[in-house]
Design a protein around this nucleic acid. Sequence first.
DNA 1: CAATTTCCTTGCATTTCGCAAGCGGCATCG
DNA 2: CGATGCCGCTTGCGAAATGCAAGGAAATTG
Lengths: 166, 166
Amino acid sequence: MPDVPAKSRSKRRSGCPVSISLETFGDSWSLLIIRDLMVRGFRTFKEFQDSGERIATNILADRLRKLEAAGIIAAELDGADRRRVNYRLTEKGIDLAPVLLELLIWAARHENTAAPCALIADMEKNRNAVLAEVRRRWREHDPTPLIPKFGADIERSNSHPGISGE
Amino acid sequence: MPDVPAKSRSKRRSGCPVSISLETFGDSWSLLIIRDLMVRGFRTFKEFQDSGERIATNILADRLRKLEAAGIIAAELDGADRRRVNYRLTEKGIDLAPVLLELLIWAARHENTAAPCALIADMEKNRNAVLAEVRRRWREHDPTPLIPKFGADIERSNSHPGISGE
DNA sequence: CAATTTCCTTGCATTTCGCAAGCGGCATCG
DNA sequence: CGATGCCGCTTGCGAAATGCAAGGAAATTG
């Protein structure tokens, strides 16, 4: 693990890990970008922009910059099309998968979401399998969306290949 | 489970559970309040105000209001001292424990935090035990702080009673 | 070389935030 | 029962963050 410059602790609200996490990505947009990178296979500015939640371009640019500065994502120019910047999670970034998973499970249980219950129950039962699959996709640069965009009806797919297989 | 009025889905950015979670408590303060309620045994406005991160009073009041509206906390007048309002997590609120735990583990691993490594390793190995203990304390109204305030040196306590005990 | 795509930046109006001060309700003290 | 103090806020104000529309540099395409 490369030792990060480690933001001088004195500039922080406190040394509490939860507080530090929230200072790093605790706004309403950062985790959505991370979600898109992690489970939807997004890579480019344009994709994030069109991803459904209508983030403003200046905010998107700002968050990408901050997440990169925090070492959660990395940006690199596309080999084929040099206009294009491909963003990718770092290991520090992919380690946020458990946080996102718990967020997803909580909302699916307590709020009226577009997530199909069957899928959620499946993920809740097989947390580790889901996390392993997320990490595998990241390691192997597999861009296939793990989860379809919520909103469309996808109720019928009661078993998701590659997830619940324990 | 009482069916909540369920904020009309149309006012949301999207139906994605992660997005909904972030709209509900995805700012830099809400989860700190929840943390204080959950693991530090805080109950009153004053305690939150003095909890180390210097939240402004208007913001604190606003967040308490929103969290109550979201059904994550409940406010009730103290029986003994009627000036006092006691806040308490609802079941929906205590269900955020896994999210906080993952947040804590992530930051402890990747950032320079005030959390003693031994304690974190312990919690990571015994996630379920930690969560069970948090829930027990909530159920039994046990106000004992589960975790000491980070910042003071507490390195020596390498085994926390009631947590790592399987 | 002109047109298009991609990834932003810039202005500007609106909202949110941090900070300090103050206020009403309740309790305690003399 | 009047003075004083604590608790949970509200208000006002300047600063920062946000949303929106427009535009612009660099690379690619036609």
